[in-house]
């Protein structure tokens, strides 16, 4: 009988001094994998223009109907994205989203990307609908933000760089 109790104490003692797996969140954060599907972000090009061209293919691909897109026309005086079209309204309802990443796959310009932010708690259901201003990343250092004024004829094509898939 004593031996069993002693064995138990020995086990406890051994484990007590092993390094713990627990991390002190939120002061320490565990890094996520490269493919982690967290909160969405709308990306920009290096020159500050938004990648999103308002095509709504993400909304079409979404199995949960979580994305709402409205498109508008770019002008050279007020340019948001390259080409003729940009998304004037872009909303994602995180309550519907299942974080499958189909929107990311569907996007022709790699604009919508699921990033690593998983801290998505909200206290009001309305806060779950994130709008474009919250989705859009900030422009790179030194780059203008959108809308920007550009030289006519410089960004006429919606997809400026084309890599041959082969």
């Amino acid at each position: 009988m004593f031996t069993e109790i002693l064995k138990g104490f020995v086990t406890t003692g051994k484990v007590a001094f092993q390094p713990a797996e627990t991390i002190q969140y939120p002061e320490q954060r565990k890094p996520v994998s490269a493919r982690f599907k967290g909160r969405h972000e709308l990306k920009r090009y290096d020159n500050g223009l938004e990648k999103c061209i308002g095509c709504a293919l993400c909304a079409a691909a979404c199995p949960a109907d979580a994305i709402f897109v409205e498109a508008s026309e770019n002008t050279d005086a007020q340019r948001f994205s390259p080409g003729e079209r940009f998304a004037s309204t872009y909303e994602i309802n995180l309550l519907r989203c299942i974080f499958c990443g189909f929107c990311e796959d569907a996007c022709p310009t790699e604009a919508i990307v699921l990033e690593s932010n998983y801290e998505l708690a909200y206290t009001d259901r309305h806060d779950a609908i994130i709008t474009k201003d919250k989705l859009l990343v900030a422009p790179a250092a030194g780059q203008p933000t959108t809308p920007m004024r550009v030289e006519p004829g410089t960004f006429d094509r919606p997809v400026p760089d084309m890599k041959n898939p082969d």
């Binding site: 061209i53 308002g54 095509c55 079409a60 003729e84 022709p108 997809v159 084309m162």
Partner: peptide, 11 residues
């Protein structure tokens, strides 16, 4: 042209 994403006829 590769315009389907920006073309009104898409769909």
């Amino acid at each position: 042209p590769l315009d389907c994403p920006v073309c009104d006829k898409g769909g």
